[in-house]
Design a protein around this nucleic acid. Structure first.
Lengths: 239, 239
DNA sequence: GGAATGCTACTTGTCGACTAGTCGACAAGA
DNA sequence: TCTTGTCGACTAGTCGACAAGTAGCATTCC
């Protein structure tokens, strides 16, 4: 098949060096992505490769590359010869994200309870919980600290790169969550649940940890779905 | 920020139409991907955009687009100004895939046991198990039927697009699994485990289902890891 | 008035050329 | 023999131009 394309000398890639995309592409991708998840670019809006290229002072090539990556993340849809559109928030994608997040985060928390948390992760989790108390009137800051808590658990259980899997699914309904920043969220109860989860892990009680995590996610995800129903213009009902 | 780029008329994307990449890009992506997962293109081998373009009779643009998608899937690594390389099978990625697959497939199987299987899924699963008996001496055919069984469960629990999440993780150690095709695999025992899982689901017993699924995955994943240790040249030990 | 038609201005898809950077071969010199 | 510098052949990254297709609008025809 493609074997004819293999170079005869079969050169080997250097050992695990840097392997990032160019700075330009990364920057474009990050900026557009940021604008999408913060809803500054609303679902359904059309983006033009030409205008984006003009905006970023490059040709269309790097812009196209960034858009392809966003398509792969489910944030952009490209219709050939018609345009590139910010994808609508898909109800099906949200349900999938909910399912994946619950399955993975419960498994992560159980594993943390079974194997124990590293002292560093314990410290960082405690600090993050204090931070959450401190910024509980600042919704955006709280969201960051909320993510940080879950991320600390994910990154401490000895499975590399598990958080990116969650983050990928999360991006879909992060847009929904962003809607809730201006409105009241039960921040105090979320913080209390975080304390419950951490306490159960420290007691090395997997079953209690799982229960605490399920209670917590149930609250987080239900409020997201409630918000979704309040903004039908942003939602694609494909469930 | 980017708001100046939004067209004034804010046109809306058509309702959920076809949204695929061009046929050329899809074809190139599929062919290279196939060659990678079947190990016809071995980890570490260098691919040249120019040679690929020549091979497929296009310019570099569609080839680049296909490569970007493969990078996103973790099958290719691009080192600027040096080359594009088939990525080594990452031990860390395999551990992550194992964790994700166990968490998700157990959750899927439990949910199937709790909510019951649709008659269609029941029929298809039964047919697939018969098919597995029939092709148990044909490793490649069995692999397909094995995937089909798990896929049927995933697609019947009312969560759309959950299988692609698993497939994405699976691609990493599918390459390993491909190594096992020529050697003996405990096919009969895998089929028996499939029967156990299906029986537990039909009895609507979530706990028995979970146990059966964990036993099954443990066997599948351990044999994959054993194979990995037997082919250190293909493995990047980054765990 | 109403329908069909073609023009125009867009869109993404593709192409070939050019840039900057990397690597290996090879020659000059100590 | 070893180091060093140069050269040439590669690489991916970027660019501007053109091709192919679409949507809307003005014109034309009935």
């Amino acid at each position: 098949m493609l074997t004819s394309l293999i170079r005869k000398d079969n050169e080997q890639a250097p050992g695990h060096g840097a392997l990032q995309a160019s700075a330009m592409v990364r920057s474009i991708h990050a900026q557009i992505r940021q604008d999408i998840v913060t809803l500054q670019l609303r679902p359904g809006v059309r983006l033009s490769e030409n205008e984006l290229a003009l905006r970023f002072g490059t040709s269309r090539a790097p812009v196209r590359e960034a858009l392809i990556r966003l398509v792969e993340e489910g944030l952009i849809e490209v219709l050939p010869q018609r345009g590139s559109f910010v994808s609508r928030i898909s109800l099906a994608a949200m349900q999938r994200a909910r399912f994946v997040r619950e399955a993975l985060e419960v498994a992560i928390a159980r594993r943390a309870a079974e194997r124990g948390l590293s002292p560093e992760a314990h410290d960082r989790a405690t600090l993050t919980l204090a931070e959450q108390e401190h910024v509980q009137t600042d919704p955006e800051g709280f969201t960051l600290a909320d993510d940080a808590f879950h991320r600390i658990l994910a990154e401490d259980i000895g499975i590399a790169q598990i958080w990116p899997v969650l983050e990928r699914e999360k991006s879909q309904f992060d847009r929904i969550r962003f809607l809730s920043l201006p409105v009241v969220t039960p921040v105090a109860s979320l913080i209390a649940q975080h304390h419950d989860i951490l306490a159960a892990i420290l007691e090395r009680d997997p079953n209690a940890t799982e229960r605490a995590m399920r209670v917590h996610l149930s609250e987080v995800l239900n409020s997201a779905e409630r918000l979704a129903t309040e903004h039908p213009d942003l939602i694609l009902n494909d469930a």
